[in-house]
Nucleic acid binder design. Structure first.
Lengths: 153, 153
DNA sequence: GCCTAAAACTTTAAGCTTGAAGTTTTAATT
DNA sequence: AATTAAAACTTCAAGCTTAAAGTTTTAGGC
């Protein structure tokens, strides 16, 4: 057989991982939409910018979030329209632009992040601290392995 | 404080869960695209149909996969074009249609499913069987809680 | 039999996502 | 200085996704 003996068990783990993640994501999307009229991709972008107060270049944003360049272009476009983000020129490189949260964007994100944290806290309330730690390690190993393969391409 | 003491730890667990899931999904998408010229949503639909040889109604498919009705409409449309799926009338209800894999669809899905299982097996190779079981339980609890809330809406 | 509500879809508008192709600018070679 | 290659984006085409609105058909009540 081309797969190992435990292959069915691993498949089952993956299917549950996927299901749980989708359930949580779906609840988050719903909450973000209802309470803040925003979306998960916008939230992710603002979170990344919030951690880099000095701003990020489009390409940096794209690599931090692991999404395509074209994707970032569109999301930033809408965040700029909303007044949450601004673009500035990068001195010495006329191709690039640096992107930052506006003061309004920062204030809005602070509210969103607080709500987000409490939503997650509620959803994962039953997870015991030691279980959480063990899972986090396993998940990290899985992700690292894939990302390594990725960068070797 | 509005969140519990462990709230930061839970947030960290969620972020890793999300990252790992996205890494795996992204690798699967890439593999499905390269090796079978198909997509994850198409694969998911065919997997659901494969488990129900007698076919599923559009609304059943939508509820099994937890995606919107309109979404299913589009994906099935393309699978029908590809010759992997066929639609038939439901006797006694002219609103509904039942959807099934064609013989070609079944054969193609069998190849895809075998590859899929071995990809997953490789990605989760380091996960010990007992760790996998513990994680699966925790994930199930999280998903069940959210789905219950969902159906109460 | 008629009316109304619900069910089973489909359509639409808006946004997310990718890979591929195209544009402008920069850097490196010659 | 001229050429070439690479970098930093943007644009495009195609597909996925949802919520909301619209269509047709069915089922229940009167």
């Amino acid at each position: 057989m081309s797969t190992t003996d435990n292959s069915k068990d691993r498949l089952r783990l993956w299917l549950r991982l996927l299901k749980a993640t989708r359930s949580v994501e779906s609840a988050l999307r719903e909450n973000l939409r209802q309470e803040f009229a925003t979306t998960l991709p916008r939230f992710d972008v603002m979170a990344a910018l919030s951690q880099h107060g000095e701003g990020l270049k489009m390409s940096e944003l794209s690599s931090v979030l692991k999404v395509s360049n074209g994707n970032v272009t569109g999301i930033i476009e809408r965040l700029v329209e909303d007044g949450h983000v601004l673009r500035e020129k990068v001195p010495g490189d006329r191709r690039a632009s640096r992107v930052r949260l506006t003061p309004e964007g920062e204030a809005e994100f602070a509210r969103q992040a607080a709500a987000h944290e409490s939503w997650i806290d509620g959803m994962f309330a039953e997870v015991a601290p030691d279980a959480a730690q063990g899972m986090a390690e396993v998940l990290d190993a899985v992700a690292r392995k894939l990302d390594k393969k990725d960068s070797a391409t």
